[in-house]
Simulated scan of single mutants.
Amino acid sequence: MHSLGISVYPDKSDIKEVYDYMETAAKLGFTRIFTCFLSIPDDKRESYLKEFKGFMDKAHELGFVVAADTNPEVFKLIGATPNNLKPFADLGLDIIRLDGNFGTQGDIAVTRNPYGIKIEFNASMDAGVDLLIKNGGNKDQIIMCHNFFPERYTGLDFDLFQQFNKQWKALNLHTAAFVSSHNDPTIGPWEVFCGLPTVEIMRPLPIEVQARYLLATGDVDDIIVGNYPASTKELEALSKINFQALELRVDEVTEITDNEKYIMYEFAPHWDRYDHSSFMLRSSFPRLQFKNQATVQDSGFGDKKEAKEDKSIPHHDCGKKVFTRGDILVVNDNLAHYRGELEVVLTEIPNDGERNLIGKVKDEDLGLLDFIKPGQHFKFIK
């Protein structure tokens, strides 16, 4: 089950603005909040934590689950210990994210608290969570969340990010990662000028594209905006993410026909054949309607998709001798047996006149093609 989240820093922001932001996010389906106790000056922590209960009441009223970054010093400040999380429970906190540890027995103790508080460990490093579980940690109250990185070029390597997530998923642990808003200005726990993503190569991408890359790996459950505040437009874009099918943004060619638009958009979701080709993704089901003038075809899922009455797909010349990665093709009348099949080019192939170019995957989305495995659903966004 996927969730969307925001980060808020009430100690650094006008509380009414924070509440307005939370209300906007809640209306758009966001259900997680991340905040940080670590950045609050020592001389202000005690008074802030007394006020924090009001923030928690508002968050719960709006349906949010709240996680706060803590460390052993925060525990001392509020009178908590690994064996006594009542002070956190009194605040209403749902998740304690541990920045630091209490040793093996202490970490086991926090995961076995009687309040149902989830303990969130750092997913961006090998935190020894597997050994913790083997030694008696309560797996039911352990979850994972990655770091975010304020400094440009310091974010997590994407391959390492995936490697860590496979490790957590092998333990059947819930995972979360951060994407970054491009709103200006934004803040984080400290001064932030370059955003707060988990993965460095995601830093410059539109926020919803960042999220689609993280989700495409198949090993990330929750997506949280690291910096505050994201724009309403960004929150809306995240709220529209399709968790069931990988989506690719495309630019249509001017020559695209109504039948070709129908194949590209109305036949969604597409899926690559199980007998996968290294040259292209093949969505073959559309050709059942365009192969000949046969009557309506049943998809096998209880629905019938009507093609246009004219099932011809005349050849149109795009001027390219070679199709390149990300080109979206439809087989035309020159290969009538396969007419209507949609194909997405992975490796260069010659233009032999049997396929029409109907669109191109946007450059920022090309990397998503690597994550479409045989049988996996995908869709196109104009």
Results as ranks from 00 to 15, higher is better:
S3L: 15
S3M: 14
L4V: 02
L4E: 02
S7A: 08
V8T: 14
V8P: 08
P10W: 06
Y21S: 03
L28A: 02
C36W: 00
L38M: 08
R45E: 12
Y48V: 06
E51K: 09
H60G: 01
L62G: 10
V65A: 09
A67L: 12
L77C: 14
I78P: 12
F88R: 14
F88E: 07
D90G: 11
L91Q: 03
G92N: 03
L98I: 05
F102D: 07
P114V: 13
I119E: 05
I119P: 11
D126N: 14
K134N: 14
K139I: 13
H146R: 04
F148T: 13
P150G: 07
G155F: 01
D157I: 05
D157C: 12
L173C: 04
S180R: 01
S181Y: 03
S181H: 08
I187H: 00
P189E: 02
G195N: 05
M202Y: 11
R203N: 05
R203A: 05
A211S: 04
Y213V: 00
D221Q: 05
N227S: 12
N227R: 07
A230T: 10
E234D: 07
L235G: 06
K240F: 02
F243A: 05
A245R: 09
L248M: 13
V253A: 00
T254E: 15
E255N: 10
I256V: 04
D258Q: 06
K261S: 00
Y262P: 12
I263L: 01
I263H: 02
P269F: 07
S278G: 12
F279H: 11
L281P: 05
S284R: 11
F285D: 13
P286L: 02
F290H: 09
K291D: 08
D298L: 09
G300K: 00
K305G: 07
A307W: 02
S312W: 05
I313D: 09
H315F: 10
D317S: 13
G319H: 14
K320L: 15
T324M: 11
T324P: 11
I328C: 08
V330R: 07
N334Y: 08
Y338F: 10
Y338M: 13
G340Y: 10
E341C: 06
V344P: 14
R355H: 05
N356V: 00
G359V: 04
K362L: 12
G367D: 10
H377Q: 13
